[in-house]
């Protein structure tokens, strides 16, 4: 029943760093450095991780806005890893992207009508009731008024602009939508409105989402499965409930414990249970050997510097719960005193 819409194996994107007049390559930013995952038809896969861990780059690879350095992207059984722009054109209908910044992702000189109808025109999609009616239907679908057709982006609030971006992405009735931080720039009440809208549209049109965000609470709310990224790699992936109830990777545990709990009564407990990570995320130009999390991990041992842990099922985890760690966290592992020693860099 759960067929794979998207399959990604060994996916890498290295951005070259060049120097001098002749652009000699002196290194590379390993933004995405070997990820394997699948996205099943009809599900929402959440992608979380700290700033710079490669979430957006992964999203841009999935939509083939970027071409991978290595690895494979298979969409509905077709290898699209290295398809040219022309070869990709028919597939553009099926895969769309929604961006974080509702301010910069809409052309300020175009009307809402022009912006939303552009994909229909580029793809030569027939609109039996006329282009304007098609756009106005889309506007209503995302909770905007059809009268907004002739207005410009600056006349709208952030939340409304995000709805415009969603209408544009929906115009071609895609199968897969990659939403890159679609609610991060919005106020909390507007954020919740957009989350509800995305959920409604998903059930109405059988959409599949990859939902990229750094907010773990929002990702938990909206996702069926969640992948946690760190420095260009997937550290852990599982069904939502497995991941949040039983995180195995020390990084996932630290990330979750850092989320502030909106309950002042539990403040002291939340603080006591918190795993404070020290130091910063290392540079993706030169990631640590072995396990990339080891410079900030309180469980690291010698082997962690030598051998990279594979992303596999650990302990007695259910199918599909995969963790890249030699020493996965067990339930009820003592949390107190988990503050790692300061690591000198």
């Amino acid at each position: 029943m759960s067929e794979n819409l998207l399959e990604v194996t060994g996916l890498q994107k290295h951005f070259p760093i060049t120097k001098g007049l002749f652009k000699r390559q002196v290194g590379a930013v390993r933004a995405v450095d070997g990820i394997d995952l699948t996205v099943q038809a009809g599900e929402t896969l959440g992608l979380v991780g700290e700033s710079g861990c490669g979430k957006s780059t992964a999203g841009r690879l999935f939509t083939r806005i970027l071409e991978p350095t290595a690895g494979k992207i298979v969409f509905e059984g077709q290898d699209i890893s290295h398809k040219s722009v022309t070869q990709m054109r028919p597939l553009r209908r099926d895969v769309q992207m929604i961006f974080q910044d509702p301010y910069s992702s809409l052309n300020p000189r175009h009307t809402i009508g022009t912006i939303i109808s552009a994909p229909l025109q580029i793809q030569n999609i027939p609109t039996p009731q006329g282009l304007k009616t098609a756009v106005q239907e889309l506007l209503e679908l995302v909770g905007l008024s059809p009268e907004h057709y002739n207005r410009y982006p600056h006349e709208f609030s952030g939340g409304q602009r995000q709805r415009i971006g969603i209408a544009r992405a929906l115009a071609l009735r895609p199968k897969l939508i990659i939403a890159d931080e679609p609610v991060s720039a919005l106020d909390v009440s507007i954020q919740a409105q957009v989350v509800n809208l995305l959920e409604d549209l998903q059930s109405e049109f059988d959409l599949t989402y990859v939902f990229i965000a750094h907010d773990l609470s929002v990702v938990r709310h909206i996702s069926d499965r969640v992948a946690v990224m760190y420095l260009g790699k997937v550290m852990e992936i599982a069904h939502r409930d497995d991941l949040y109830k039983n995180p195995r990777h020390p990084y996932t545990v630290a990330l979750m414990s850092a989320v502030p709990v909106p309950d002042p009564v539990r403040r002291d407990r939340a603080q006591r249970d918190r795993v404070l990570l020290t130091g910063d995320v290392p540079s993706p130009i030169n990631p640590p050997s072995g396990c990339r999390f080891r410079t900030r991990c309180w469980k690291a041992q010698d082997i962690c510097a030598v051998e990279e842990p594979p992303l596999v099922r650990r302990l007695d985890d259910p199918d599909g719960h995969l963790t890249a760690c030699h020493f996965p966290v067990v339930e009820d592992e003592a949390v107190a005193g988990r503050k790692p020693a300061t690591i000198n860099v």
């Binding site: 507007i190 954020q191 919740a192 989350v195 709310h221 909106p262 539990r266």
Partner: peptide, 14 residues
């Protein structure tokens, strides 16, 4: 607000 300290709600109530 979706909350990590509670069960997942079907729907947010903004």
């Amino acid at each position: 607000m979706p909350r990590m300290d509670r069960e997942v709600r079907d729907r947010l109530t903004p």
